[in-house]
């Protein structure tokens, strides 16, 4: 008796599945589930950004959107997979500068030219940060002086080599004619520990990640890699003010494969632009210490990436990472 009940239930479940699997292919986009891939693992900044946008996009477009993490080779796996999919707008990826680095290193067959931007959603400033109470060098002038006096003795913490942190510090050192010692860490938290413990002299961090320590006065920015000063660090100069034209910050955006029909791209761009101007998204930005200037339309962002892309290729060649 019990068995029969179970089999009935199972059959019903089977029917349900069948129905969901064979949704009719309609003319109008979107007519079926959209798959959205991210290169980082669950719970990270890119994941939270993606889930914030995708939840609203799901309502806007009226189709299921499934976000899956496809980590591997700093986005190599995700980009390779995207290249195999048809350019029909049903495959969306979240893109960050680390993916640009992966492309510049030729660890993936995809290149910048294979992608079309939908929108940029995050622009997270980076800074060279120090722990004023324990640091040997209390500001950027002292760091520069020390690095000039003892080349290779000033230790700068970075998150992974060939990452946006590394590149920012490298560009700065190149512009200022310094030789720094880079100490790779696996995450921002480890850099904070090393800074507070006096193991390293400075570290490249996103201030937004460590605001708790900043508010407590344990950490402060020595130099910013953005164009304008930040209100949280009134005393910290930008690299530009010091006379070095360095701008290198973490960004995240949404992209599709090149060749996706124009109307489809436009439709996704419009929907996403509306979401990003919305109250919910702006609150997300504020909660994560990012400004409203983070949001960029697809066209603007494409131009922005076009400007940054040659820089990445150049630096990866210089550092010996371009295959």
């Amino acid at each position: 008796m019990k068995n029969i009940k179970w089999s009935m239930l199972a059959l019903a479940a089977c029917g349900l599945l069948w129905q969901s699997a064979t949704t009719v292919q309609a003319e109008e986009f979107p007519s079926k589930q959209i798959n959205w891939y991210i290169h980082s693992s669950a719970g990270g900044g890119t994941d939270i950004f993606t889930r914030t946008v995708s939840a609203e996009l799901r309502e806007k477009l009226g189709v299921p959107i499934v976000v899956s993490s496809m980590s591997g080779g700093s986005g190599a796996r995700m980009l390779n997979y995207m290249m195999e999919q048809p350019a029909d707008g049903y495959t969306i990826v979240s893109l960050t500068n680390s993916n640009l680095a992966t492309m510049a290193r030729r660890n993936t067959e995809a290149q910048r030219e294979d992608l079309v931007g939908i929108a940029r959603g995050c622009y997270d400033p980076q800074a060279l940060m120090i722990a004023p109470s324990v640091a040997k060098y209390k500001n950027i002038d002292e760091i520069i002086a020390a690095a000039k006096a003892n080349p290779g003795k000033v230790k700068v913490g970075i998150t992974h080599v060939a990452s946006v942190d590394h590149v920012a510090a490298y560009l700065f050192s190149k512009a200022a004619g310094l030789q720094l010692e880079y100490v790779p860490f696996s995450g921002g938290g480890e850099i904070v520990v090393a800074l507070l413990g006096g193991v390293i002299d400075a570290g490249v961090l996103n201030p937004s990640e460590v605001m708790g320590q900043v508010e407590a006065g344990n950490l402060t920015a020595a130099v910013l890699f953005v164009q304008e000063r930040l209100k949280d660090f009134p005393d910290a100069p930008t690299a530009k003010e010091l006379g070095y034209d360095v701008e290198m910050n973490t960004w995240r955006g949404i992209a599709v494969k090149k060749g996706t029909p124009e109307p489809i791209v436009k439709k996704i761009r419009d929907a996403v632009a509306e979401i990003m101007q919305g109250e919910k998204y702006q609150k997300y930005l504020a909660d994560n210490s990012m400004g409203p200037e983070s949001v960029m339309s697809g066209e603007q962002w494409d131009a922005f990436m076009d400007a940054e892309w040659p820089l990445w290729k150049e630096i990866m060649t210089e550092l010996g990472y371009r295959k």
């Binding site: 939270i48 460590v210 605001m211 708790g212 320590q213 900043v214 508010e215 407590a216 344990n218 997300y284 909660d287 994560n288």
Partner: peptide, 8 residues
């Protein structure tokens, strides 16, 4: 996400 900044 909930607007708290863990730290000292």
């Amino acid at each position: 996400v909930h607007g708290m900044r863990p730290g000292p």
